[in-house]
Design a binder for these strands. Structure first.
Lengths: 341, 341
DNA sequence: CTCCTCGATGAAAACCTTTGAGTCGCTAAG
DNA sequence: CTTAGCGACTCAAAGGTTTTCATCGAGGAG
């Protein structure tokens, strides 16, 4: 029998070599139970002998599954560049999806053009589902995605009604309580907060945790809090503003490590020693930042790798039509002590 | 006529509605010339009326094209997190590929496991081609990819023989000459260089540009140069080492903006004023960094967006079997003056 | 010994598109 | 008036897999 030119082997070839029909070979590949041990072995042998790989397109055609999922980021461009958090999320997504043998189609969505394209793409059935990172208030992406008949898992709470939405969030509020309680336990009396932008629910949750740990009323929170916009520069400015407004402050809980880095700069400039004069706690536990500030930063760890892994698992369950016990998962946060508090 | 349930319309539906055959409808979609204006219009009308989108799997099955390309990054993890350059490349890739309606499948390749997976995936015919970012010496990814019958375009020169390889590089050497000449033109006499890791050809090229602009011999270069590893911290340390070794230095060309940021810190600590005492030129012109150092950084611009765009165009030509005039493209670099030199 | 059941298997349809070969109606050339 | 040529189109095959349904054989019950 002539071996064909070095075209990729098809299921037919495998079946022929194993001495069974295409159907049986297919059943082996899909781990169907109705197949005899001998057939199973023969097919497996043929598969590895031929180096067979199923043709994704053919399979997709009949199963109506593409084996790909979209990963959507809606974030203004500078943030994506500056904040290592995004790189980490993208990497975690790449790894987690590769682990389950699913193609990751990355889409960055900023402009209305991008939104239209994303809509076309998602509606076009080119992916089986989507992972959506869109933390901002009234994010267009969310409304675009929401009306599509497509399984979606969100990272954190998207703005608006959460009814029926699948998401994996970090316990932002709990983490903030942890951080604030820790500062209290150090005997600090005048604790302030550099928050993230209040059009993101994660920032609001952290603010609320701070507020509840200190039993503050709205006015109190407003006085002791400044928005740092989740950027380094914003953190620096917010810290300066707080120093001006509350000169006697002896501790600060900063809602992200990147902002905390900025806040530390501001504190140094103001001549305050950390942690002696002012204790500082960040949020994220982003090692690349937290371990390289001076002093190294005590921070609330939110494990992004874990979050993304859960998102992928959750989405896979949705795709397999399994029932998920809880649509909305919350991941615990822990305090990682270093030297700043 | 009953409208079917809300299943996605197929080409058959479009053809029926337009009153033509499937074949004609297909030709319209693929912009074949052999089609009458009336038919063209009728089909287009039907397409938009039905909101038809071609089934990618079916198309892939017959054309043997997947409509997806892989984007491979082989870089140790910390780099990917810390260096905004990667975020920029990823973003540029996402945009450029979306523009030509091609799916971007992102793969980060670090471990041997990853390499095996990448090999399986690429050999499995799941993508039509690949964009490879693998700058390091003897990078496994390159050898894996090289023996595959798959169109590949590299970012920058991969290590090893370049014969027959398609790549888009920045004019690193030219940029380095530009930077060094600029420092000379400022009347600086003692110019040193913080290089990137010398297992990357881009770093070597920049070093060579520095060397040739100053007509240095090997010994001279060695004395005036220190490896900063393309990291911020490395830049700081390299600068300190150079300050110790060449106290009289009055200018430094740093091979990346991230390292330059570190070098500036080191210079400040050493009490040198920039640019009065020491003029500094970076490389990359990474705005997020260069505009926010103090003082703002003069830098050699390499336009990554442009580079990636060229890579995508190049790959598309390869996929269309067009002949490419030059397999290896070199993109010009320009000096962007700010305050540091 | 016959009839059923049941598990393993094979034949064939279905998924949706592209594309080469063939058809049809027309004009221009002979 | 016939015929070659041509443009626009249709027919139908091909592409590789999953899955339904039918078949086949073996073994157990009657």
């Amino acid at each position: 029998m002539l071996v064909s030119n070095h075209a990729r082997p098809t299921l037919e070839d495998v079946a022929a070599r194993a001495g069974v029909s295409r159907a049986t070979a297919s059943r082996v590949l899909n781990a169907s139970p109705r197949v005899s041990p001998e057939a199973l072995e023969a097919v497996n042998a043929a598969v590895s002998a031929l180096g067979y790989q199923p043709n994704r397109a053919a399979r997709a055609l009949v199963t109506r599954r593409t084996g790909a999922v979209a990963v959507l980021f809606s974030e203004p461009e500078p943030k994506i560049f500056d904040d290592p958090h995004f790189a980490r999320l993208i990497r975690a997504g790449a790894r987690a999806l590769a682990d389950v043998d699913v193609q990751m189609v990355l889409m960055l969505v900023h402009s209305p053009d991008d939104q239209a394209r994303a809509h076309r793409f998602l509606a076009g059935g080119h992916v089986d589902g989507a992972l959506v990172f869109a933390p901002h208030r009234n994010d267009e992406v969310v409304s675009v995605v929401k009306k599509l008949p497509l399984p979606v898992v969100y990272a954190g709470k998207p703005w608006g009604s959460l009814r029926g939405m699948h998401l994996v969030d970090n316990d932002n509020e709990g983490g903030a309580v942890l951080a604030t309680e820790h500062l209290k336990s150090l005997g600090r009396k005048k604790i302030v907060h550099v928050s993230g932008p209040l059009d993101e629910l994660s920032a609001i949750d952290r603010l609320n945790g701070f507020k509840s740990a200190l039993s503050l009323d709205d006015k109190g929170v407003a006085r002791l809090t400044e928005d740092g916009g989740f950027t380094r520069e914003g953190g620096r400015k917010a810290m300066s503003a707080l120093l001006a407004r509350v000169p006697a402050l002896d501790a600060v809980f900063v809602a992200s490590d990147l902002m905390a880095a900025g806040a530390l700069e501001s504190l140094h400039e103001a001549g305050r020693r950390v942690p002696e004069d002012v204790a500082v706690v960040g949020f994220d536990d982003h090692v690349a930042i937290a371990e390289h500030t001076s002093p190294p930063l005590t921070s609330v760890r939110q494990d992004s790798d874990e979050q993304v892994k859960h998102m992928v698992e959750h989405l896979m369950k949705l795709l397999r039509d399994e029932t998920v016990k809880r649509k909305q998962q919350m991941l615990p946060t822990v305090l990682v002590r270093r030297e700043s508090a």
